[in-house]
């Protein structure tokens, strides 16, 4: 019975000695506690370095450290990133635009007069319809030119309409009147024709306005309507088809009739009406608002529970190099518990 305390004491003695050695030997344990004087020296060194660093920051006007607004959580998006994003989205969009127009229609009609029996008479009326059943073209953007000013990013870039083709019919109708009508009767032909879309370059110019929307900043597009004026350029084959069709009509008719129809410069009329072009307005929805890539969240999630941070947006601050936005927190975050 009396031996047990002795053994226990001996064990404690050994353990205590080992513990003492462990704590005293440098490298074996936590480092030696510094003296108060050593701490003071470290604080002095830290403060000196901090002052020097602060002076350097001021001297170099380091980024926007000084211009960042007050707020608990901020996001600063450099103009370089905003510009790169806007540029990439706009050029990407415009490189993907495919135009597919159907059932375009252009029309011309007129009376044809001829000298019949020593008198100018209306010998007939022609009606010419160009029906484009299908027109396809693609857009290719050129290099954008961007300008950042205040809260807007201006962008201007050329867009080339290329690789366009159209197919359709030229519907020619002749309604002979008087003598010509009696002799020629009516004519109604619709040869199929095709055409390439004349390559053209359009200048797209607009702005993206930066504004705070909820917890992020959005670049809102502000573009005037973009109107494309597509012109057709029928090749020799198409003109030949038209000419041959009308030639057949002419060959079928008598002299008076041939004279009347020959007075109609069908090719010229077709050229004239298709040269007015086909206007295509790019929808405003083509350019959508671009959210800048960082948003301040007003809540956080812990273990499946959403905790509101009671945050209030502080709006936008635009400096020459950075767009700042962020939030301020309210009084108390829900979910914070007092010690029990």
């Amino acid at each position: 019975m009396k031996r047990a305390p002795l053994i226990g004491g001996a064990v404690l003695l050994v353990l205590g000695t080992l513990a003492g050695v462990y704590y005293m030997l440098p490298g074996l344990s936590r480092s030696r506690a510094p003296s108060t004087a050593e701490l003071a020296r470290l604080v002095k060194e830290r403060n000196l370095l901090r002052d020097e660093f602060g002076a350097l920051l001021t001297q170099q006007q380091f980024l926007d450290f000084a211009q960042a607004p007050a707020g608990n959580v901020l996001v600063g998006v450099p103009n370089v990133i905003s510009e790169r994003l806007v540029s990439q989205v706009v050029t990407g969009l415009l490189s993907e635009v495919r135009l597919h127009l159907t059932n375009l229609h252009a029309h011309a009609e007129d009376d044809v007069q001829a000298n019949v029996l020593f008198k100018q008479r209306t010998v007939g009326r022609f009606s010419l319809d160009v029906d484009i059943k299908d027109l396809r073209a693609v857009l290719k953007p050129g290099d954008p030119d961007l300008k950042f000013g205040q809260d807007r990013i201006g962008i201007q870039l050329p867009v080339h309409a290329t690789e366009g083709r159209a197919r359709g019919t030229v519907h020619f109708r002749w309604d002979g009147q008087g003598l010509a009508g009696a002799v020629c009767g009516d004519v109604d032909v619709s040869p199929d024709v095709s055409s390439r879309v004349r390559p053209a370059t359009y200048m797209v110019k607009g702005d993206f306005l930066l504004s705070a929307r909820g917890d992020t900043v959005v670049a809102e597009p502000d573009f005037p309507p973009i109107l494309l004026d597509l012109r057709l350029d029928p090749g020799p084959d198409s003109w030949k088809v038209l000419e041959d069709t009308l030639g057949d009509v002419k060959d079928d008719k008598n002299g008076v009739c041939r004279m009347a129809i020959q007075k109609i410069d069908v090719q010229g009329i077709v050229k004239k009406i298709i040269d007015k072009g086909f206007k295509v307005k790019l929808p405003r929805a083509l350019f959508r608002p671009i959210a800048l890539p960082a948003a301040v969240e007003q809540s956080v999630e812990f273990q499946g529970k959403v905790v509101s941070l009671n945050a209030r947006p502080i709006g936008l601050r635009v400096t020459p190099r950075v767009v700042w936005y962020g939030v301020e927190f309210g009084t108390e975050v829900q979910g914070v518990a007092a010690p029990r």
Binding site: L12, G16, T17, A19, Y23
Partner: peptide
């Protein structure tokens, strides 16, 4: 026995 135990405890507390 008590003396040894006391020394052990002191050593332990001194180390830890």
């Amino acid at each position: 026995a008590l003396a040894v135990t006391a020394v052990g405890l002191l050593a332990m507390l001194g180390g830890c």
